[in-house]
Structures are given as C-alpha cells and as structure tokens.
C-alpha cells in the first residue's frame, strides 16, 4: 500500500458484474485487461461471490481491487475498481446501476424479472459506463435514455404468460400502494 499519486484518469471502473444466488454470471463486463481470459474472470467471480454473498457489508478489498457490492433478493451487483480509486465514485456507479434497474423493473429487482429485461440491462449499463469511463450517474437520466417501450408493446405481440405476468405486477403494486 505505498503512497501513490494517481495518474489523473477518467478510467474509473474495471468491471461491472451481476451474479445470481449460486454465484453464476448473469452479466459481466470487464473494461480492462486485469482478467484477460474467461477462465481468470470466472475464477475471480467465484472468489468474489464466496467472500461477499454471506455478508451484507457493501465494500471489500479482493485480489488487490476495491469491490463495492449490493445484494437484492437473488441477485448480487458488483462494481470493481483499482484499490487506489475513490471508493465513493465506485459507489455512485453501483447506486446508479441499481436504482436504474429498480425503476425499470418497477422495484422488482430479482433474477427472473432481470432475465426478462435483459436488453434493458444491456442498454442501461451501456449508458452508465463506456469503456471504463463513467458516462452518467443519475438514474433518472439513464432510465430516460434507455427509454424501453414497456407499455407500448402491442398486446398481440406479447405471449400469454407475459400478459399474465404484467397483469399480476399491476395488481400487486396497486394492492401495495
């Protein structure tokens, strides 16, 4: 941990990961060559998952990298940066990702909902971080830019189960309100 003056850089994020409650990769985007091969990436993800999924603390130092994380039902969100990086910046990215998804999935941040909105996830991450540079940190902006049509899908194009699901969602939220 030698004192080191950071080379000023906009490249803040090394990776964004989303794992399920078995530690399986649902989404992973690595922005630099810290873990060049898929094998190394998976090993790193396994290590991260083992060290974090049982605790609810939100930050850890693993393999010389700072990892901020957050769990939600059966999902685990991770943002990874260098150990010299400002932890609060990484936290801002994590919060933005989580809040954006939470809005897009109507507060229903869990594995199945996420898988049904995979394209939304891809687009949101693309709006938040570009090549390791933080592009946007305001969840409202992200949701606005992703602009998923959601409602305006013609009913005819939806499958029966999707219609049922969305009806159920609507009932649930109206009851909870």
């Amino acid at each position: 941990m030698e004192a080191l003056i950071l080379e000023p850089s906009l490249y803040t994020v090394k990776a964004i990961l989303i794992l399920d409650n078995d530690g399986e990769r649902l989404f992973a985007k690595y922005y630099d060559d810290t873990y060049p091969s898929v094998k190394e990436q998976k090993a790193f993800e396994k290590n991260i998952f083992n060290k974090t999924h049982r605790t609810d603390s939100e930050i850890a130092l693993l393999e010389g990298l700072t990892v901020v994380y957050k769990g939600s039902i059966d999902l685990y969100f991770y943002v990874i940066g260098s150990s010299y990086e400002n932890e609060l910046m990484l936290m801002a990215v994590l919060n933005c990702l989580f809040d954006s998804l939470s809005q897009m999935l109507r507060k229903n941040v869990e594995k199945r909902a996420l898988l049904e909105n995979m394209e939304g996830l891809f687009l949101a991450v693309d709006e938040i971080v570009d090549g390791g540079v933080i592009l946007e940190s305001d969840p409202q902006q992200v949701v606005h830019r992703v602009a998923l049509r959601g409602e305006d899908v013609p009913l005819t194009e939806q499958t029966v189960s999707q219609v049922l699901q969305s009806a159920k969602e609507q009932i649930k939220w109206s009851l909870l309100r």
Partner: peptide, 18 residues
C-alpha cells in the same frame, strides 16, 4: 455509509504508517 467509513479508515491507516 459503509463505503465512506471504509475509505476513511483505510486512508487513516496509510497516515498512521508515516
């Protein structure tokens, strides 16, 4: 916020070395 506490104590740890 845990991240802020972590950041603070980690930096203090660095100060303590010198």
């Amino acid at each position: 916020k845990a991240a802020l506490r972590y950041a603070a104590v980690r930096t203090l740890n660095k100060v303590a070395m010198k």
